[in-house]
Simulated scan of single mutants.
Amino acid sequence: MHAYLLDYIKTRSHSPITEAEVSLIKEAFIPKKLRKRQFLLQEGEVCKYIGFIIKGATRQYTVDEKGYEHILNLSIEDWWVSDRESFHKETPSIYNIDAWEETDFLLLPKAEGYYERVNNIPAFNEMRIQLDDNHHIASQRRLHDSIYHTAEYRYEELIKQHPEFLQRFPQHVIASYLGMTKETLSRIRNQSVRK
């Protein structure tokens, strides 16, 4: 599992990784397996880890007072998952993160200074900055699309950006992620099939 993460870091940075840094990464990242619907984080808990998905799929969501789930993020292999606000500020999370499929993670804990020590590895830090920039751009675009574009446009963008989501997650999860009802998504899908 650690070799997979090390390859991932190397392909997203120009800095070399020393043997000492490899040892620190192997020491810091903890393997974890979750069954489907098992929680990595539950609302009210303080997030203690940043997780890298080796295999599987997760969702990050809130549940409103009527019991409806509102999905903020869907994640699959090679994606990072966490509630960053809870992790960095050490405040109770407003989110749930659970495994949608059986999922294998490598978890980086904040405890014992592991997060800070790993962030001081130039290759890891370079990768993290690049991912943070990409995440910010994607979040901005998603927010813009939810404000200014139709449900049809949002669905078409999802097909372009993440076609694998349609294979990995059911229609009601995709609908929630896109901010629409499953009936609206069903209508859009039927219209696109007819085109």
Rank of each mutant, 00 (worst) to 15 (best):
R117C: 03
E85F: 13
L106P: 01
A99D: 00
N119Q: 07
T11M: 05
H14V: 01
N73V: 09
T11W: 06
L107M: 11
V22I: 12
N73R: 14
F39R: 12
N120V: 02
Y95N: 08
E77Q: 10
H88C: 10
A111W: 02
G44M: 08
E65T: 13
K26R: 14
L40S: 07
I25V: 15
A123W: 04
I121W: 05
Y49W: 13
V81Y: 11
N120R: 13
I97K: 06
L34N: 04
Y68D: 15
F39G: 03
W80H: 04
L40M: 12
E116C: 04
G67S: 09
A111Q: 15
A57H: 02
E65Q: 13
Y115L: 09
G67K: 10
F29K: 00
L24A: 09
E77H: 05
P109A: 12
I50F: 06
Y114S: 04
Y114H: 12
K55Q: 12
P109G: 09
A123H: 00
L34W: 06
R35T: 02
K89S: 12
L41W: 02
P92A: 09
G113P: 08
P31M: 13
R59S: 03
E112Q: 10
T18L: 09
R12E: 03
S15L: 10
E90T: 09
I50G: 06
A28M: 00
R84T: 12
Q60V: 04
K110Y: 13
E65L: 14
T58W: 03
Q42P: 00
E116S: 14
I71E: 06
E21A: 09
I97M: 10
W100A: 03
I30L: 15
H14E: 11
G113Y: 10
L106S: 01
E102R: 10
